[in-house]
Design a binder for these strands. Structure first.
Lengths: 219, 219
DNA sequence: GGCGTAAGGTTACTCAGCGGTAGGTAAGGC
DNA sequence: GCCTTACCTACCGCTGAGTAACCTTACGCC
């Protein structure tokens, strides 16, 4: 069951702290993503990292601290990836498009990061809920900004019949859920995935069945 | 921290098995929803249920079995609630509408059920992933049916440029995510919530900012 | 009415897994 | 040669799942 994704051959070489920390974090993300926070054991992490347990405690602290380090690192990577993809001076739909593309690109490249962030950190009551909520909130905020700015350009915001934040939450959820679905249907490319969602969100179902299609313009 | 949501005053009365089983399941759902599967202890569950631990083992089996019983019961309730709300002989958008209304009605009434199903059971690798996936799959399937039938009526299915299942997954995710958002913004009514999502899904963002609104017809 | 027995119920324990640490060894710079 | 940094083995103690053994009330049956 627990295959042999164990430590790499080199061992017992004295390496600088920064390198070990990276190894440990990588191992931790891998193990946490496989088993979840509670079921992951420090022993396995140390084993995968090719380092003894006390090193982990000495470098990155207790289990909770370690997990926090993981979350923070992966969340940072992800936000950075998505934000880097967004071009601030294009219309809202194109911003959304680029954001989606970057997001799915990230998930494709860092499956484990995504798993840790999305599935493992959700356990209610843990000290991580806050951390992940923060990430999610930033995502919702980001999208909400697009939503409101798109709405404002056309007068939606004023009528206040819809909550920008609520819609953004729904949208983020749709993106996440599609990402999860994707994990089991990897034969679709990330671009196609982003395109589906973009069409659903932007045109809506009604337009979609009418045969309309949204396509990115050249910007 | 762990308030006094303990057993009710009556105690030490001999009750028939069926009654005890219900008490135990109720308690288990409450505790699991608060702490998550791993952090929930059998001791607390027995305490909340007002019953000693061996009874749980005798009636409902080990922790895993107990959790499975919870999931199955809550999933059953939920599916039943949603399906009961759907009227099979109305247009796809109205079916979706009724489904959404029932869904949010259920979440409003059974917060704990929703929490257990959605947040606690997701831990990868557990024996529950399958169980919850099954529920999710049925939801996706249900929606996918609507999507495809709506599409077929207009010729979308044939062009096969979109995956009905993928879109359904996105849609289910949007609904779930909005339900989560709702847990922290309960000042919105379930009908309004369903209406937001319906508009987003059916009309899409573009139409929305143009000022169009989808409203349920009288069926 | 008594009396046997199954169903309801409990206390008090075992035991393994795992988070965390004490205390020590070796490498290498200066 | 000495001190810092890298690194290890071997252990402790607690928490929490699961159980053995025992008590007790209802009730069918002669």
């Amino acid at each position: 069951m627990t295959e042999d994704v164990r430590r790499s051959p080199e061992r017992a070489k004295r390496l600088p702290r920064a390198v070990r920390e990276k190894q440990i974090l990588d191992a931790a993300v891998a193990v946490f993503s496989r088993h979840g926070y509670h079921s992951a054991s420090m022993d396995e992490i140390s084993d995968v990292a090719g380092v003894s347990k006390p090193m982990i405690y000495s470098y990155l602290g207790a289990k909770e601290d370690l997990f926090l380090h993981c979350i923070r690192r992966e969340a940072g990577r992800m936000l950075q990836a998505v934000q880097a993809g967004i071009k601030p001076d294009v219309p809202p739909d194109m911003q959304l498009w680029h954001g989606l593309r970057s997001f799915y690109g990230f998930v494709a490249e860092y499956r484990e990061s995504w798993t840790v962030l999305h599935r493992q950190a959700l356990t209610v009551g843990g000290p991580f809920a806050g951390e992940v909520d923060a990430l999610r909130s930033r995502a919702i905020e980001l999208v909400s900004g697009l939503v409101v700015s798109a709405g404002a350009r056309k007068g939606l915001a004023e009528q206040a019949e819809f909550s920008g934040e609520g819609l953004a939450a729904a949208l983020v959820g749709a993106a996440e859920s599609l990402a999860d679905w994707w994990l089991d249907h990897s034969d679709v490319s990330d671009g196609v995935l982003a395109s589906w969602l973009m069409n659903l969100i932007w045109l809506g179902f009604n337009d979609l069945v009418e045969g309309e299609v949204w396509r990115p313009t050249e910007q």
